[in-house]
Design a protein around this nucleic acid. Structure first.
Lengths: 345, 345
DNA sequence: ATGAAAGCGCTAACAA
DNA sequence: TTGTTAGCGCTTTCAT
């Protein structure tokens, strides 16, 4: 079914014939080469416009061994952080006249590995990625790097791979959140995370523990609790069980979907936020302000992170920049205090 | 900077040399052609695997004049409807071993038209799109169709173009929402929309008016109010002005970002939702349930719509399906009643 | 069942 | 300044 109306397909050959010049002249003129006369250039550009000539990207990519396209590889897309980050990425991709392929791993290592294998083909000139939660073996990523495809990580980075990385300070974010809850009088704070992400979770755990240690509180294993990044009844049940058993008076939810999960779990347990239990969540949702109660959040500069990641990649692609390995940019996240952590006073 | 480690680039030529067969044999064997012996096939597949052969997509696309990639063209991505729709699309794209390019129009006709022009190049085999709000002239879309690129519209469709369309029933959605507000005792309902989308808005307006007419209420022009699809202070101010002037006791917000805008406008005006004013919003945000108060929504089957749109496109692409023009699928949206439209009793 | 060869549309030496 | 030519890696007749 790919026949189409191939009748009026105009290519360089067509232009060459019409203008009585060689194909090479057309090619050079269109790429504004310096060894084509201004007058010829104009004629070529003009008739190209008239005949609605559009270059065939695949011919060009095959020949040049570069595709003017990048891949965005992320765990999921129905997430305010990632969708805002994509906006940032897109702003640069568009500006550079590139194209962006989007791939969702759904946090599956297998899918991620397969995608990377496929991308060995030269389909993209570079990759922007947030790694899947359960990716431990990172050989697939290293392989692609060795094949010469530059990679920039954003948010969910792989620490032990030499590549550019844009992230927020997970240690400090968790530290800020924990200290805030302590300041609000919490004595028994649970850190709720999701499975996977060894490096990120470790950093957040450390930040959490440091804040506790500063107040001479011994962290309990049971307060570090992990469930799935889903918003469903089962997850609510799991969280309810944790709350019932551990009876935290403060919860730090480290991923977006846990916000709704936590609120609903508390509601079902008839726990009042913030009186009975205070809640902080890592999320960029703009509705945080109008939740019941409004939600204290750790806000990441998603758009800017996406933009920065794309900028780094394009600097590298255009040769302006080389030391990708040493780029390790940490952007500040922000604690936005709202009613979900308010004290009674 | 696109040199990479081209040293170990293995292509069909490499395989042919290694196996002492012709390139044609390799090609056929890998595509499981019937005129290659089973034994040869196995040998080819085996060594391809061993040498980590991955076909060059651009060579293949150039030759076959089809790219195994589609374009997703949408106004924005930081929107729960679109991101959920993309999830649905991706589920099919992945299954069909296709690739998806993502393009954001930011609701700009100029950008949209330019993208379509670019896609004349044959970069994609098909397009899934939601049209930009201010697109009136649709020649760019027709041009691409005439060039043989199939297009499936979802959600924001262009009625007068013969192409497959997946949408929800805008007339009925607005009708349901309006009737619900009337049932809850509202007498002065405002329909808040955004600029653009003639066909969608007209349908919603009609549904709104029909519900009013059934109760013998004359719709007032001032109750149909349009602002921008932004979440910012200016937009809040504009909405506040409307509320102050028109004093509606019910608001139907027809796009997602208007939810937060409306809530904050009411808060600033010290209007209690739902006592002073009831609110319904067209949105798929999962946080609707935990807003203050929980928000009555018109929910669209975003994931299924994306999936369905992709399915239609691939049926067509694989020749299984031809009558794209007559496909006009309307999927039911759902009114989810919550506290923002609750009556006092 | 396998191979030779043409060519998809473009780029980039190299010649003229 | 312009043209000739040799591919990029793959698919696909058409021979054998």
């Amino acid at each position: 079914m790919t026949d189409g109306t191939k009748s009026n397909k105009v290519n360089m050959k067509t232009l060459a014939k019409v203008l009585n010049v060689s194909i090479a002249t057309i090619s050079k003129a269109l790429r504004d080469s310096h060894d084509i006369g201004d007058e010829t250039k104009q004629r070529v550009i003009e008739t190209a416009r008239l005949l609605h000539y559009v270059p065939n990207p695949y011919a060009s990519s095959l020949r040049k061994r570069s595709s003017n396209t990048i891949a965005i590889i992320i765990p999921e897309i129905a997430d305010s952080y990632f969708s805002q980050a994509i906006n940032g990425i897109e702003s640069i991709v568009d500006q550079e006249k590139y194209h962006a392929l989007i791939y969702l791993t759904h946090d599956s290592y297998e899918r991620e590995a397969q995608m990377f294998n496929e991308l060995t083909s030269g389909r993209v000139d570079g990759i922007l990625m947030s790694v899947a939660s359960n990716t431990k073996d990172t050989q697939h990523i290293k392989n692609l790097q060795q094949a010469g495809v530059p990679i920039v990580f954003f948010d969910r980075v792989v620490e032990d791979i030499p590549a550019a990385k844009i992230k927020t300070d997970d240690f400090n974010s968790a530290y800020m959140a924990t200290r805030h809850l302590l300041d609000q009088g919490c004595k028994n704070i649970s850190l709720v995370t999701i499975e996977g992400y060894p490096s990120i979770l470790q950093a957040r755990e450390s930040g959490y523990k440091k804040a506790l240690a500063e107040r001479d509180i011994e962290p309990e294993d049971q307060n570090i609790f992990s469930c799935s990044n889903k918003y469903n009844q089962e997850n609510i049940a799991v969280l309810k069980e944790h709350i019932t058993n551990v009876k935290p008076d403060g919860i730090i939810a480290t991923v977006e979907h846990l916000a709704t999960t936590t609120y609903l779990a508390c509601e079902e347990l008839k726990l009042n936020i913030p009186q009975d239990i205070k809640v902080v969540c890592f999320t960029n949702q703009i509705t945080a302000a109008i939740l019941n109660p409004s939600l204290t959040t750790v806000l990441q500069p998603a758009y800017d992170m996406g933009r920065k990641a794309a900028e780094l990649l394009f600097w590298h692609l255009s040769g302006r920049y080389v030391q990708m390995e040493s780029e390790n940019i940490v952007m500040p996240s922000k604690l936005v205090v709202r009613d979900s952590t308010r004290t009674a006073d």
